[in-house]
Design a binder for these strands. Structure first.
Lengths: 189, 189
DNA sequence: TCCCCTTGCCTAAACCCTTTAGGAAGTTCT
DNA sequence: AGAACTTCCTAAAGGGTTTAGGCAAGGGGA
């Protein structure tokens, strides 16, 4: 009987595609098996279980995102870096809604520690090198940016900005300006 | 045969409790039926289907949140209002993680329009009455606050701030100060 | 080349969740 | 009490998840 050539690698990659097509929550071993024209049970040699599959997709997404962010930040600083990083983040969410949803899967602490989430934190600190922030306030600023990016993109994805002007893109651009200004002129405690 | 006294109301309320106990994604008709000591099929007289149940829980959470926010904002303005609103939001997420997750369920446009989400937007505008913001920048500011609140609380819930100091609470307090300062001194375009 | 061993995929089966159809028992109103 | 309605039930179909056990394809070694 001919082999379909399923591997963990290909499974995860296909799962990511599938997530972008039909939504991360509908990515199931069953659906994937259908796509590979293989019986469901066959997947369980490559992936521990459904949760394992979803976790691997999440890790893939985090990795891709960190790769793009790193590329975008190369050679930039300050405002330019901020805008570049933010653009990567938002574009990824729009191009790959399923992967982006996956990236927000809650990971258990050990998995999270080994994930690209750590790289993300590092990259954010890189952005701030262009501004004059030190000590705890640097961490606070990282958290402000991270929260804003994540919150904005999530709200946008949920259509939260659709039913009143201005368009979400206008807010995005303007708010990046505002944040740049805030970082340059960070209030003293 | 004795009746269990199931109603849509009690079902949704129990579903919300359940969400806080075991997570919103694990709230299922089956689990609820077990809690009410009733056969699963019996629920379908009170609730259209699983999705309907989840939507109702989401609407309940949005309503509760708006109620609390409205109460907290009464008689406050400016910085005080900002801190009060933010506190309500974060406390609710910590006290009721399942309900909070439910509140972020993606609703179809009609349902969303009829939800308390609209009240939320209104309340945020109330906060800004204490600051000197008009026109599009007022909307941008609302979106900044909404994105930050949502993003921060989500990241905090996912344990994103757990593995490096300072504690997330310190960032929260400090960042509210920073945002207050930003709103008072909003940069010109 | 032949054998063997690993590995990929299969069948079978158990279990749980969702949803619909149709029926019986309890409740309410007249 | 009888009619009408509501609540809850049984039965059954349809999927998704997961494990156990088996057959055969493909690669490595004698």
């Amino acid at each position: 009987m001919a082999r379909a050539g399923v591997t963990t690698e290909r499974l995860v990659r296909a799962g990511a595609e599938l997530a972008d097509e039909i939504g991360f929550d509908r990515v199931t071993p069953s659906e994937l098996a259908r796509r590979f024209d293989v019986k469901v049970a066959s997947l369980y040699s490559h992936v521990k279980n459904a949760h394992d599959l979803r976790t691997r997709i999440a890790l893939l997404a985090l990795d891709e995102l960190a790769d793009r962010a790193a590329a975008a930040l190369a050679g930039r600083a300050g405002r330019e870096a901020l805008v570049a990083f933010a653009g990567v983040y938002r574009d990824y969410a729009r191009e790959h809604p399923g992967r982006f949803a996956a990236a927000q899967l809650r990971l258990d602490p050990e998995t999270a520690a080994a994930s690209a989430g750590v790289r993300h934190a590092q990259l954010m600190r890189t952005i701030l090198r262009g501004y004059d922030l030190t000590g705890p306030d640097q961490t606070h600023a990282v958290r402000l940016l991270g929260s804003f990016f994540r919150g904005f993109v999530a709200l946008e994805a949920d259509g939260g900005f659709d039913h009143s002007p201005p368009a979400s893109g206008a807010s995005w651009t303007r708010l990046l300006d505002v944040l740049d200004s805030l970082l340059r002129d960070w209030p003293r405690p």
